[in-house]
Design a binder for these strands. Structure first.
Length: 478
RNA sequence: GUCCCCAUCGUCUAGUCGGUUAGGACACCACCCUUUCAAGGUGGCGACACGGGUUCGAAUCCCGUUGGGGAUACCA
Protein backbone atom coordinates (compact mmCIF):
# COMPACT_ATOMS: atom_id res chain seq x y z
CA UNK A 1 0.00 0.00 0.00
CA UNK A 2 1.53 3.27 -1.12
CA UNK A 3 1.65 6.21 1.21
CA UNK A 4 -0.82 8.98 0.38
CA UNK A 5 0.45 11.46 -2.17
CA UNK A 6 1.74 14.64 -0.56
CA UNK A 7 3.77 17.13 -2.55
CA UNK A 8 5.07 20.56 -1.79
CA UNK A 9 6.05 23.75 -3.51
CA UNK A 10 8.82 25.30 -1.47
CA UNK A 11 9.80 28.75 -2.67
CA UNK A 12 12.24 31.06 -1.01
CA UNK A 13 10.67 34.45 -0.28
CA UNK A 14 13.34 36.58 -1.86
CA UNK A 15 11.18 38.64 -4.18
CA UNK A 16 8.44 37.50 -6.46
CA UNK A 17 7.13 34.26 -7.95
CA UNK A 18 9.26 33.35 -10.94
CA UNK A 19 7.49 31.82 -13.95
CA UNK A 20 9.73 28.78 -13.55
CA UNK A 21 8.47 28.56 -10.00
CA UNK A 22 4.94 28.88 -11.29
CA UNK A 23 5.46 25.86 -13.49
CA UNK A 24 6.97 23.89 -10.63
CA UNK A 25 4.01 24.87 -8.46
CA UNK A 26 1.61 23.92 -11.26
CA UNK A 27 3.17 20.50 -11.78
CA UNK A 28 3.05 19.81 -8.06
CA UNK A 29 -0.55 20.97 -7.97
CA UNK A 30 -1.47 18.79 -10.94
CA UNK A 31 0.28 15.78 -9.48
CA UNK A 32 -1.53 16.20 -6.18
CA UNK A 33 -4.94 16.68 -7.76
CA UNK A 34 -4.38 13.85 -10.20
CA UNK A 35 -3.67 11.41 -7.41
CA UNK A 36 -6.13 12.72 -4.88
CA UNK A 37 -3.22 13.93 -2.81
CA UNK A 38 -2.30 17.01 -0.84
CA UNK A 39 -0.51 20.09 -2.14
CA UNK A 40 1.55 21.86 0.48
CA UNK A 41 3.09 25.32 0.36
CA UNK A 42 6.20 25.71 2.45
CA UNK A 43 8.17 28.91 2.79
CA UNK A 44 11.93 28.34 2.78
CA UNK A 45 13.13 31.40 4.62
CA UNK A 46 16.33 30.10 6.13
CA UNK A 47 18.57 32.81 4.78
CA UNK A 48 18.22 35.88 6.95
CA UNK A 49 20.53 37.88 4.72
CA UNK A 50 18.13 37.51 1.83
CA UNK A 51 15.04 38.56 3.70
CA UNK A 52 12.86 40.73 1.50
CA UNK A 53 9.98 42.68 2.97
CA UNK A 54 6.69 41.64 1.43
CA UNK A 55 8.13 38.81 -0.64
CA UNK A 56 6.00 36.13 0.97
CA UNK A 57 2.84 38.16 0.40
CA UNK A 58 3.84 38.64 -3.22
CA UNK A 59 4.32 34.89 -3.61
CA UNK A 60 0.94 34.10 -2.13
CA UNK A 61 -0.72 36.77 -4.24
CA UNK A 62 0.71 35.30 -7.43
CA UNK A 63 -0.27 31.78 -6.50
CA UNK A 64 -3.77 32.97 -5.72
CA UNK A 65 -3.95 34.89 -9.00
CA UNK A 66 -2.95 31.75 -10.85
CA UNK A 67 -5.57 29.78 -9.01
CA UNK A 68 -3.14 27.24 -7.59
CA UNK A 69 -4.84 26.61 -4.29
CA UNK A 70 -2.74 24.71 -1.78
CA UNK A 71 -4.23 22.53 0.91
CA UNK A 72 -1.71 23.37 3.60
CA UNK A 73 0.44 26.44 3.96
CA UNK A 74 1.46 29.35 6.15
CA UNK A 75 -1.79 31.25 5.72
CA UNK A 76 -4.17 28.29 5.64
CA UNK A 77 -2.58 26.08 8.28
CA UNK A 78 -2.55 22.29 8.35
CA UNK A 79 -1.58 19.52 10.71
CA UNK A 80 2.09 19.54 9.74
CA UNK A 81 2.75 23.23 10.41
CA UNK A 82 4.24 25.63 10.92
CA UNK A 83 4.89 26.06 7.23
CA UNK A 84 7.63 28.65 7.49
CA UNK A 85 11.07 27.20 8.08
CA UNK A 86 12.11 30.14 10.23
CA UNK A 87 9.49 28.90 12.68
CA UNK A 88 10.85 25.37 12.76
CA UNK A 89 14.43 26.04 13.80
CA UNK A 90 14.38 23.68 16.78
CA UNK A 91 13.65 20.76 14.49
CA UNK A 92 16.75 21.35 12.40
CA UNK A 93 18.96 21.91 15.41
CA UNK A 94 17.76 18.64 16.90
CA UNK A 95 18.52 16.82 13.68
CA UNK A 96 21.97 18.37 13.56
CA UNK A 97 22.62 17.31 17.15
CA UNK A 98 21.58 13.80 16.33
CA UNK A 99 23.92 13.66 13.35
CA UNK A 100 26.72 15.05 15.49
CA UNK A 101 26.14 12.42 18.15
CA UNK A 102 26.13 9.61 15.63
CA UNK A 103 29.32 10.87 14.02
CA UNK A 104 27.71 11.68 10.68
CA UNK A 105 28.37 15.38 11.09
CA UNK A 106 31.08 17.50 12.63
CA UNK A 107 31.67 21.03 13.78
CA UNK A 108 33.80 22.97 11.36
CA UNK A 109 35.86 25.96 12.46
CA UNK A 110 37.24 27.02 9.10
CA UNK A 111 37.34 30.74 8.44
CA UNK A 112 35.85 32.19 5.27
CA UNK A 113 39.34 33.19 4.14
CA UNK A 114 40.66 29.67 4.56
CA UNK A 115 37.76 28.24 2.65
CA UNK A 116 38.20 30.64 -0.19
CA UNK A 117 41.85 29.75 -0.51
CA UNK A 118 41.14 26.05 -0.25
CA UNK A 119 38.59 26.31 -3.03
CA UNK A 120 40.94 28.20 -5.26
CA UNK A 121 43.71 25.65 -4.87
CA UNK A 122 41.28 22.81 -5.31
CA UNK A 123 40.05 24.13 -8.60
CA UNK A 124 43.57 24.56 -9.90
CA UNK A 125 44.50 21.03 -8.87
CA UNK A 126 41.87 19.51 -11.21
CA UNK A 127 41.14 17.07 -8.45
CA UNK A 128 37.70 15.58 -9.09
CA UNK A 129 37.21 14.62 -5.47
CA UNK A 130 35.57 16.67 -2.80
CA UNK A 131 37.11 19.76 -1.37
CA UNK A 132 38.73 18.62 1.85
CA UNK A 133 37.91 21.15 4.54
CA UNK A 134 38.43 18.83 7.49
CA UNK A 135 40.82 20.13 10.16
CA UNK A 136 43.22 17.95 12.14
CA UNK A 137 41.64 16.97 15.46
CA UNK A 138 44.01 19.02 17.65
CA UNK A 139 43.57 22.18 15.56
CA UNK A 140 39.84 21.77 15.58
CA UNK A 141 39.81 21.37 19.37
CA UNK A 142 42.11 24.33 19.81
CA UNK A 143 39.81 26.55 17.76
CA UNK A 144 36.77 25.26 19.61
CA UNK A 145 38.43 26.06 22.92
CA UNK A 146 39.27 29.57 21.75
CA UNK A 147 35.55 30.17 21.15
CA UNK A 148 35.66 30.49 17.38
CA UNK A 149 32.27 30.33 15.65
CA UNK A 150 31.48 27.06 13.94
CA UNK A 151 29.11 25.46 11.48
CA UNK A 152 27.90 21.89 11.36
CA UNK A 153 28.95 19.92 8.32
CA UNK A 154 27.83 16.59 6.93
CA UNK A 155 30.57 13.98 7.14
CA UNK A 156 30.41 12.47 3.69
CA UNK A 157 31.71 8.89 3.40
CA UNK A 158 34.31 7.84 0.85
CA UNK A 159 34.06 5.41 -1.99
CA UNK A 160 30.33 4.99 -2.12
CA UNK A 161 28.11 5.14 -5.16
CA UNK A 162 24.88 6.89 -4.41
CA UNK A 163 22.27 5.77 -6.90
CA UNK A 164 18.66 6.70 -7.24
CA UNK A 165 15.83 6.59 -9.71
CA UNK A 166 14.63 9.98 -10.84
CA UNK A 167 11.04 9.93 -12.01
CA UNK A 168 11.77 12.04 -15.06
CA UNK A 169 15.41 11.25 -15.73
CA UNK A 170 15.68 7.59 -14.89
CA UNK A 171 18.67 6.13 -13.05
CA UNK A 172 21.30 8.56 -11.76
CA UNK A 173 24.45 7.56 -9.92
CA UNK A 174 26.99 9.81 -8.26
CA UNK A 175 30.13 8.91 -6.34
CA UNK A 176 30.22 10.09 -2.75
CA UNK A 177 33.85 11.04 -3.30
CA UNK A 178 32.82 14.13 -5.18
CA UNK A 179 30.17 15.18 -2.68
CA UNK A 180 31.29 18.04 -0.46
CA UNK A 181 30.94 18.08 3.30
CA UNK A 182 27.85 20.20 3.04
CA UNK A 183 27.15 22.79 5.69
CA UNK A 184 23.99 21.75 7.50
CA UNK A 185 23.76 24.39 10.18
CA UNK A 186 25.15 27.85 9.65
CA UNK A 187 26.93 29.77 12.37
CA UNK A 188 23.78 31.79 13.01
CA UNK A 189 21.99 28.58 13.96
CA UNK A 190 19.85 28.54 10.83
CA UNK A 191 19.89 25.43 8.66
CA UNK A 192 20.90 25.40 5.01
CA UNK A 193 18.40 24.34 2.39
CA UNK A 194 19.78 20.81 2.38
CA UNK A 195 19.12 20.02 6.02
CA UNK A 196 15.87 21.93 6.24
CA UNK A 197 14.32 20.39 3.17
CA UNK A 198 15.16 16.85 4.26
CA UNK A 199 13.91 17.35 7.79
CA UNK A 200 10.72 19.03 6.60
CA UNK A 201 9.94 16.72 3.73
CA UNK A 202 10.07 13.90 6.21
CA UNK A 203 8.19 15.73 8.94
CA UNK A 204 5.51 16.79 6.50
CA UNK A 205 5.25 13.29 5.08
CA UNK A 206 6.09 14.42 1.57
CA UNK A 207 5.81 11.47 -0.81
CA UNK A 208 7.15 13.05 -4.00
CA UNK A 209 9.60 15.89 -4.45
CA UNK A 210 9.00 17.59 -7.77
CA UNK A 211 11.43 20.44 -8.27
CA UNK A 212 13.80 22.11 -10.74
CA UNK A 213 16.81 20.41 -12.26
CA UNK A 214 19.19 22.71 -10.45
CA UNK A 215 18.73 20.43 -7.44
CA UNK A 216 19.81 17.26 -9.16
CA UNK A 217 23.49 17.48 -8.20
CA UNK A 218 22.68 17.85 -4.51
CA UNK A 219 20.49 14.77 -4.30
CA UNK A 220 23.32 12.61 -2.90
CA UNK A 221 23.67 14.93 0.10
CA UNK A 222 19.97 14.65 0.71
CA UNK A 223 19.95 10.90 0.37
CA UNK A 224 22.79 10.62 2.86
CA UNK A 225 20.82 12.77 5.28
CA UNK A 226 17.72 10.63 4.91
CA UNK A 227 19.77 7.57 5.64
CA UNK A 228 21.60 8.99 8.67
CA UNK A 229 18.41 10.40 10.10
CA UNK A 230 16.65 7.09 9.59
CA UNK A 231 14.07 8.51 7.20
CA UNK A 232 12.53 6.94 4.14
CA UNK A 233 13.36 9.27 1.22
CA UNK A 234 10.53 10.54 -0.98
CA UNK A 235 10.36 9.78 -4.70
CA UNK A 236 12.31 12.36 -6.70
CA UNK A 237 11.46 14.12 -9.95
CA UNK A 238 13.65 16.85 -11.41
CA UNK A 239 12.06 19.12 -13.97
CA UNK A 240 13.87 20.61 -16.95
CA UNK A 241 14.76 24.28 -16.62
CA UNK A 242 13.02 27.21 -18.25
CA UNK A 243 15.43 29.07 -20.47
CA UNK A 244 16.11 32.52 -21.93
CA UNK A 245 16.26 32.73 -25.70
CA UNK A 246 20.05 32.27 -25.46
CA UNK A 247 19.42 29.00 -23.62
CA UNK A 248 20.72 30.17 -20.26
CA UNK A 249 18.60 29.67 -17.18
CA UNK A 250 15.61 31.99 -17.37
CA UNK A 251 16.48 35.16 -15.54
CA UNK A 252 15.49 38.74 -15.05
CA UNK A 253 17.81 40.92 -17.12
CA UNK A 254 16.51 39.21 -20.27
CA UNK A 255 12.87 40.04 -19.89
CA UNK A 256 10.03 39.50 -17.50
CA UNK A 257 10.27 36.52 -15.22
CA UNK A 258 7.85 37.47 -12.47
CA UNK A 259 4.34 36.14 -12.61
CA UNK A 260 3.20 39.60 -11.59
CA UNK A 261 4.82 41.07 -14.68
CA UNK A 262 2.55 38.95 -16.83
CA UNK A 263 -0.45 39.76 -14.72
CA UNK A 264 0.37 43.46 -15.11
CA UNK A 265 0.63 42.99 -18.85
CA UNK A 266 -2.94 41.71 -18.82
CA UNK A 267 -2.26 38.08 -19.56
CA UNK A 268 -4.99 35.82 -18.29
CA UNK A 269 -3.88 33.42 -15.56
CA UNK A 270 -5.48 30.60 -17.56
CA UNK A 271 -3.32 31.49 -20.56
CA UNK A 272 -0.10 31.72 -18.56
CA UNK A 273 -0.81 28.44 -16.81
CA UNK A 274 -1.76 26.70 -20.05
CA UNK A 275 1.39 27.98 -21.73
CA UNK A 276 3.70 27.13 -18.88
CA UNK A 277 2.18 23.65 -18.57
CA UNK A 278 3.40 22.98 -22.11
CA UNK A 279 6.96 23.96 -21.34
CA UNK A 280 8.24 20.49 -20.60
CA UNK A 281 5.06 18.52 -20.99
CA UNK A 282 2.49 17.69 -23.68
CA UNK A 283 -0.52 15.42 -23.79
CA UNK A 284 0.76 13.31 -26.68
CA UNK A 285 -1.91 14.49 -29.10
CA UNK A 286 -2.63 17.75 -30.89
CA UNK A 287 -4.70 19.46 -28.24
CA UNK A 288 -3.24 22.63 -26.79
CA UNK A 289 -5.98 24.50 -25.00
CA UNK A 290 -6.47 23.11 -21.54
CA UNK A 291 -8.28 24.51 -18.55
CA UNK A 292 -6.78 23.79 -15.17
CA UNK A 293 -9.17 20.92 -14.64
CA UNK A 294 -8.47 19.49 -18.05
CA UNK A 295 -4.78 19.61 -17.22
CA UNK A 296 -5.42 17.67 -14.05
CA UNK A 297 -7.12 15.06 -16.20
CA UNK A 298 -4.51 14.89 -18.96
CA UNK A 299 -1.24 15.63 -17.18
CA UNK A 300 1.18 12.97 -16.05
CA UNK A 301 4.71 12.98 -14.72
CA UNK A 302 5.60 10.23 -17.20
CA UNK A 303 5.15 12.64 -20.07
CA UNK A 304 7.42 15.33 -18.66
CA UNK A 305 10.45 16.04 -20.84
CA UNK A 306 14.08 16.03 -19.87
CA UNK A 307 15.40 19.00 -21.82
CA UNK A 308 15.12 22.69 -21.04
CA UNK A 309 12.54 24.84 -22.77
CA UNK A 310 12.79 28.41 -23.98
CA UNK A 311 10.10 30.73 -22.72
CA UNK A 312 8.56 31.96 -25.98
CA UNK A 313 6.51 35.16 -25.73
CA UNK A 314 4.88 34.72 -29.14
CA UNK A 315 3.33 31.45 -28.12
CA UNK A 316 2.18 32.88 -24.81
CA UNK A 317 0.48 35.72 -26.70
CA UNK A 318 -1.22 33.17 -28.93
CA UNK A 319 -2.60 31.37 -25.88
CA UNK A 320 -3.93 34.63 -24.52
CA UNK A 321 -5.60 35.38 -27.83
CA UNK A 322 -7.31 31.99 -27.70
CA UNK A 323 -8.60 32.74 -24.22
CA UNK A 324 -9.90 36.16 -25.25
CA UNK A 325 -11.88 34.53 -28.02
CA UNK A 326 -13.33 31.90 -25.70
CA UNK A 327 -14.40 34.51 -23.16
CA UNK A 328 -18.16 35.21 -23.01
CA UNK A 329 -19.00 38.67 -24.36
CA UNK A 330 -20.55 39.80 -21.09
CA UNK A 331 -17.34 39.02 -19.22
CA UNK A 332 -15.26 40.85 -21.77
CA UNK A 333 -17.60 43.79 -21.32
CA UNK A 334 -16.73 43.96 -17.64
CA UNK A 335 -13.03 43.54 -18.36
CA UNK A 336 -13.31 46.43 -20.76
CA UNK A 337 -14.60 48.88 -18.16
CA UNK A 338 -11.35 49.74 -16.37
CA UNK A 339 -9.64 50.40 -19.68
CA UNK A 340 -12.45 52.70 -20.70
CA UNK A 341 -12.59 54.41 -17.34
CA UNK A 342 -8.93 55.30 -17.76
CA UNK A 343 -9.98 57.40 -20.76
CA UNK A 344 -13.14 58.71 -19.14
CA UNK A 345 -15.27 56.57 -21.38
CA UNK A 346 -17.38 54.97 -18.74
CA UNK A 347 -20.97 55.77 -19.57
CA UNK A 348 -21.71 52.62 -21.55
CA UNK A 349 -24.04 49.85 -20.56
CA UNK A 350 -22.99 46.22 -20.46
CA UNK A 351 -25.19 45.21 -23.38
CA UNK A 352 -23.44 47.72 -25.62
CA UNK A 353 -19.97 46.73 -24.42
CA UNK A 354 -20.81 43.08 -24.98
CA UNK A 355 -21.75 43.83 -28.57
CA UNK A 356 -18.47 45.67 -29.05
CA UNK A 357 -16.62 42.74 -27.50
CA UNK A 358 -18.32 40.32 -29.84
CA UNK A 359 -17.16 42.29 -32.87
CA UNK A 360 -13.64 42.89 -31.58
CA UNK A 361 -12.60 39.78 -29.72
CA UNK A 362 -11.39 37.96 -32.79
CA UNK A 363 -9.14 40.87 -33.62
CA UNK A 364 -7.15 41.27 -30.41
CA UNK A 365 -4.77 39.44 -28.12
CA UNK A 366 -5.62 41.51 -25.05
CA UNK A 367 -8.83 43.20 -24.02
CA UNK A 368 -7.05 46.53 -23.62
CA UNK A 369 -6.38 46.53 -27.34
CA UNK A 370 -10.06 47.01 -28.04
CA UNK A 371 -10.22 50.72 -27.12
CA UNK A 372 -6.83 51.23 -28.75
CA UNK A 373 -7.88 49.62 -31.99
CA UNK A 374 -11.47 50.80 -32.00
CA UNK A 375 -11.85 54.02 -30.02
CA UNK A 376 -14.75 54.92 -32.32
CA UNK A 377 -17.04 52.66 -30.33
CA UNK A 378 -16.61 55.02 -27.41
CA UNK A 379 -15.92 58.41 -28.85
CA UNK A 380 -16.60 60.25 -32.05
CA UNK A 381 -13.67 60.29 -34.47
CA UNK A 382 -12.01 63.68 -34.44
CA UNK A 383 -9.75 63.04 -37.36
CA UNK A 384 -9.57 60.67 -40.30
CA UNK A 385 -6.71 58.34 -41.02
CA UNK A 386 -4.70 60.06 -43.77
CA UNK A 387 -3.81 56.91 -45.68
CA UNK A 388 -7.37 55.68 -45.62
CA UNK A 389 -8.65 59.03 -46.81
CA UNK A 390 -6.17 59.08 -49.63
CA UNK A 391 -7.10 55.61 -50.71
CA UNK A 392 -10.85 55.57 -50.08
CA UNK A 393 -12.26 59.07 -50.19
CA UNK A 394 -13.05 60.35 -53.66
CA UNK A 395 -14.26 63.83 -54.63
CA UNK A 396 -17.67 62.25 -55.24
CA UNK A 397 -17.78 60.42 -51.92
CA UNK A 398 -19.51 63.23 -50.07
CA UNK A 399 -22.41 63.39 -52.50
CA UNK A 400 -22.78 59.63 -52.51
CA UNK A 401 -22.81 59.42 -48.72
CA UNK A 402 -25.54 62.05 -48.63
CA UNK A 403 -27.69 59.74 -50.70
CA UNK A 404 -26.87 56.74 -48.52
CA UNK A 405 -27.48 58.74 -45.39
CA UNK A 406 -30.88 59.74 -46.71
CA UNK A 407 -31.77 56.11 -47.36
CA UNK A 408 -30.51 55.08 -43.94
CA UNK A 409 -32.42 57.75 -42.08
CA UNK A 410 -35.72 56.41 -43.31
CA UNK A 411 -34.91 52.81 -42.43
CA UNK A 412 -37.52 51.14 -40.24
CA UNK A 413 -35.08 48.68 -38.68
CA UNK A 414 -31.45 49.50 -37.93
CA UNK A 415 -30.12 46.01 -38.45
CA UNK A 416 -27.11 44.71 -40.31
CA UNK A 417 -29.23 42.93 -42.95
CA UNK A 418 -31.22 46.04 -43.85
CA UNK A 419 -28.13 48.21 -43.69
CA UNK A 420 -26.45 45.95 -46.19
CA UNK A 421 -29.34 45.65 -48.63
CA UNK A 422 -29.97 49.38 -48.48
CA UNK A 423 -26.35 50.10 -49.22
CA UNK A 424 -26.38 47.69 -52.14
CA UNK A 425 -29.51 49.29 -53.54
CA UNK A 426 -28.10 52.76 -53.14
CA UNK A 427 -24.95 51.71 -54.97
CA UNK A 428 -27.08 50.43 -57.83
CA UNK A 429 -29.06 53.63 -57.98
CA UNK A 430 -25.85 55.62 -58.08
CA UNK A 431 -24.42 53.20 -60.63
CA UNK A 432 -21.26 52.66 -58.60
CA UNK A 433 -19.66 49.62 -57.03
CA UNK A 434 -20.65 48.89 -53.43
CA UNK A 435 -17.06 49.57 -52.44
CA UNK A 436 -17.55 53.23 -53.34
CA UNK A 437 -20.01 53.41 -50.47
CA UNK A 438 -18.62 50.83 -48.06
CA UNK A 439 -15.18 52.33 -47.63
CA UNK A 440 -16.16 55.98 -47.29
CA UNK A 441 -18.88 54.98 -44.83
CA UNK A 442 -16.45 53.06 -42.69
CA UNK A 443 -14.08 55.99 -42.78
CA UNK A 444 -16.87 58.39 -41.84
CA UNK A 445 -18.15 56.44 -38.83
CA UNK A 446 -14.83 55.11 -37.53
CA UNK A 447 -12.18 57.47 -38.81
CA UNK A 448 -10.06 54.52 -39.91
CA UNK A 449 -9.94 52.09 -42.80
CA UNK A 450 -9.95 48.83 -40.86
CA UNK A 451 -12.31 47.15 -38.47
CA UNK A 452 -15.18 44.72 -38.14
CA UNK A 453 -17.78 44.08 -40.81
CA UNK A 454 -19.25 47.47 -41.77
CA UNK A 455 -22.89 46.49 -41.34
CA UNK A 456 -22.35 45.07 -37.88
CA UNK A 457 -20.29 48.09 -37.02
CA UNK A 458 -23.14 50.37 -38.05
CA UNK A 459 -25.68 48.30 -36.21
CA UNK A 460 -23.76 48.35 -32.95
CA UNK A 461 -22.96 52.04 -33.23
CA UNK A 462 -26.67 52.82 -33.69
CA UNK A 463 -28.56 55.09 -36.02
CA UNK A 464 -27.97 58.41 -34.26
CA UNK A 465 -24.22 58.10 -34.01
CA UNK A 466 -23.86 56.88 -37.57
CA UNK A 467 -25.93 59.59 -39.20
CA UNK A 468 -24.21 62.32 -37.23
CA UNK A 469 -20.77 60.97 -38.06
CA UNK A 470 -21.55 60.65 -41.75
CA UNK A 471 -22.74 64.24 -41.71
CA UNK A 472 -19.57 65.44 -40.02
CA UNK A 473 -17.36 63.49 -42.39
CA UNK A 474 -19.03 65.04 -45.42
CA UNK A 475 -18.45 68.47 -43.89
CA UNK A 476 -14.79 67.96 -43.14
CA UNK A 477 -13.73 65.78 -46.06
CA UNK A 478 -15.88 67.42 -48.71
C1' G B 1 38.69 23.20 -13.71
C1' U B 2 35.54 19.17 -11.74
C1' C B 3 30.86 16.65 -11.36
C1' C B 4 25.82 16.05 -13.06
C1' C B 5 22.04 16.60 -16.76
C1' C B 6 20.46 17.41 -21.76
C1' A B 7 20.51 17.14 -27.47
C1' U B 8 14.17 16.34 -33.58
C1' C B 9 12.26 22.52 -37.80
C1' G B 10 14.07 29.59 -35.45
C1' U B 11 10.76 28.22 -30.83
C1' C B 12 7.40 24.52 -28.04
C1' U B 13 7.13 19.57 -29.27
C1' A B 14 5.05 14.17 -31.48
C1' G B 15 8.15 9.99 -32.09
C1' U B 16 8.02 5.75 -25.76
C1' C B 17 7.81 -2.00 -28.51
C1' G B 18 14.00 0.10 -33.93
C1' G B 19 10.55 -0.26 -40.23
C1' U B 20 6.83 7.10 -40.54
C1' U B 21 6.76 10.73 -47.32
C1' A B 22 9.83 12.43 -39.55
C1' G B 23 3.55 14.65 -37.54
C1' G B 24 1.41 19.08 -34.96
C1' A B 25 1.56 24.16 -32.82
C1' C B 26 3.80 29.31 -32.64
C1' A B 27 6.36 32.63 -35.90
C1' C B 28 7.21 33.75 -41.19
C1' C B 29 5.61 33.63 -46.60
C1' A B 30 1.79 32.76 -50.52
C1' C B 31 -3.08 31.90 -52.00
C1' C B 32 -8.45 31.40 -50.84
C1' C B 33 -12.47 33.59 -48.11
C1' U B 34 -13.88 38.67 -46.77
C1' U B 35 -15.08 44.96 -51.36
C1' U B 36 -11.47 46.56 -44.93
C1' C B 37 -8.71 44.36 -40.79
C1' A B 38 -8.70 40.13 -38.16
C1' A B 39 -10.29 35.16 -37.62
C1' G B 40 -10.68 30.81 -40.63
C1' G B 41 -9.13 27.49 -44.80
C1' U B 42 -5.23 25.61 -48.15
C1' G B 43 -0.26 25.36 -49.29
C1' G B 44 4.99 26.69 -48.56
C1' C B 45 9.59 27.40 -45.78
C1' G B 46 11.86 24.52 -42.06
C1' A B 47 14.80 19.51 -37.96
C1' C B 48 16.72 14.10 -36.30
C1' A B 49 24.46 18.04 -33.89
C1' C B 50 28.67 14.83 -35.62
C1' G B 51 31.42 10.09 -35.81
C1' G B 52 31.57 5.08 -34.87
C1' G B 53 29.22 0.63 -33.70
C1' U B 54 24.75 -3.23 -32.97
C1' U B 55 20.99 -4.61 -36.76
C1' C B 56 18.31 -6.89 -42.84
C1' G B 57 16.87 -1.97 -41.10
C1' A B 58 18.63 3.44 -36.20
C1' A B 59 15.66 9.95 -34.92
C1' U B 60 14.83 5.61 -31.80
C1' C B 61 19.77 1.00 -28.70
C1' C B 62 25.39 1.36 -27.23
C1' C B 63 30.13 4.13 -27.24
C1' G B 64 32.71 8.49 -28.32
C1' U B 65 33.02 13.62 -29.94
C1' U B 66 30.94 18.31 -30.08
C1' G B 67 27.57 21.70 -28.28
C1' G B 68 24.36 23.63 -24.47
C1' G B 69 22.74 23.98 -19.51
C1' G B 70 23.06 23.20 -14.25
C1' A B 71 25.91 22.48 -9.78
C1' U B 72 30.25 23.37 -7.40
C1' A B 73 28.11 29.48 -1.16
C1' C B 74 27.57 29.92 6.29
C1' C B 75 21.74 31.27 -1.46
C1' A B 76 17.74 28.65 -2.37
Amino acid sequence: MDAPVRVRFAPSPTGYLHVGGLRTALYNYLFARKHGGTFVLRIEDTDQSRYVEGAEESLLRSLRWAGLQYDEGPDVGGKYGPYRQSERLALYQEAAEELLRAGHAYRCYRTPEELEQLREEHQKSKNPNRLDVRLPREESERRAASGMPSVVRLLVPDGETIAFEDLVRGPVAISSDIVDDQILLKSDGFPTYHLANVVDDHAMQISHVIRGEEWLPSVPKHLLLYRYLGFEPPRLAHLPLLLNSDRSKLSKRQGDVAVEDYRDKSFYPEALLNFVAFLGWNPGDDREIFSRDELVEAWSLERVNKSGAIFNLDKLAWFNQQYVRMRPDAELAEELRPHLAARNWDHFDTAYLAQVAQLMKERVTFVYEIPELAPYFFTEPTEYDADAVKKRWKPESGERLKVLSGAYSSLAEWHADELESTLQKTAETLAVGAGQLIHPTRLAVSGVGVGPSLYHLLEVLGRERCLVRIERAIESLG
